[in-house]
């Protein structure tokens, strides 16, 4: 099953490598990883998505919690939550494809953020699934580059992950 784990991590050198090292060392999957500082400069917020059966997931959360640099952790997929992935995708856009790509982008509520004589760069946010379907919808086009931020997530409602 796919899980979204969100972590408050000490903003210390080496902290991130402990998290990533844990996954490779113990053979856990890591699908996406997103990390950036928070409003509190001593903390980073890290969101990762992973898959595994219940037993593996239990171990992953326990092992993460055991890391001294992990301050707090929540499995967002246990409750209602919002997840967003940001994609920048550069496609060849010339001739008839130029309109076609624009239309598809509009349908997905994407934005064309850079226009070249023969290329478009499109920005799209949403769940990982939505981004995947956009890429699928672009099958006809000549995709030059895809950049994704990885999932960032937050719980809905009153539930917060903070100190």
């Amino acid at each position: 099953m796919r899980r979204i784990i969100s972590i408050l991590l000490e903003n210390e050198p080496g902290a991130l490598s402990r998290v990533i090292g844990l996954f490779s060392q113990r053979g856990y999957n890591i699908e996406t990883l997103n990390v950036a500082p928070t409003e509190d400069v001593t903390l980073s917020r890290l969101t990762l998505t992973t898959t595994g059966d219940d037993k593996t997931m239990e171990q992953i959360t326990k092992q993460l919690n055991k890391l001294v640099d992990v301050v707090k952790l929540v499995d967002l997929s246990e409750g209602a939550h919002i997840e967003r992935d940001l994609m920048l995708i550069k496609v060849r856009a010339s001739g008839a494809m130029r309109d076609e790509i624009k239309r598809t982008t509009d349908i997905f509520r994407g934005q064309i953020v850079d226009v070249g004589p023969n290329t478009y760069t499109i920005q799209l946010t949403g769940t990982g699934e939505k981004l995947d379907s956009f890429v699928a919808a672009m099958a006809e086009a000549d995709i030059l580059e895809v950049v994704r931020s990885g999932v960032a997530g937050i719980s809905r409602g009153e539930k917060v992950l903070r100190l």
Partner: peptide
């Protein structure tokens, strides 16, 4: 050293 020992320590400091 912090990197090499990372998977075999409880914690490390630089």
């Amino acid at each position: 050293m912090v990197g090499i020992s990372r998977p075999i320590v409880k914690h490390s400091f630089m």
